[in-house]
Amino acid sequence: MSNGLSTRDLEWVSAYLDNALPSQERAAFEQRLEAEPDLSDALKQLERTRALLRRAPQRRVPRSFALRADMVAALRKTAAGGWNSWNLVSAAATLVLVLVFAGEIWASGMPLFGVAAPAAEEAPQAMMAQESAEDLTVTPTPTDSATEGAGEIELHAEQDQGDRNTKEAGPFDLRLFLADYARPLEFSLAILAIGAGLFAWWRRRNP
């Protein structure tokens, strides 16, 4: 505050000095100036301060700041280099992340772009087959003899082992791979995309 003026009065005095008050407010303020000596005194002092600031010497420019051709060439090189390295890494990681995410949806059997994955059509039948196999394997009927039941369980256990061996040794199954590794892969790719993007941004700001 100046001369005990309120902040609002101080703002009015300052704006009046710069002819920045709307005409109605200006007229009202001029009436107050006539009636309140403190206000007119504050106006005079602020006017002197402004005049003093306007007399602040302008500093002479020490040199030319014009850009040279070699500076511009270096600038283009930096910009191009920046895009080709970390921005590219970030963009590639983002693209792979989107593909993995789409693949995960496809593997889960949810319709992707209106087309259900083959797994979705096969799933109910497979589940039913699996359930009946489990019934046969785990729940022996009361009429079966203990020996027959034991033999059947052994037989199914061998079959299961055989299936697992086939899975392990068989061709690469993308659906199984995505089911097992999609989440950690997505997490790693997201970290890479964000990290590389941030680093590229930082490099641009601090060449």
Binding site: S2, T7, E11, V13, S14, L46, T49, R50, L53
Partner: peptide, 8 residues
């Protein structure tokens, strides 16, 4: 306004 006042 406040800067001018403090400068004054």
């Amino acid at each position: 306004a406040r800067a001018r006042s403090r400068l004054q």
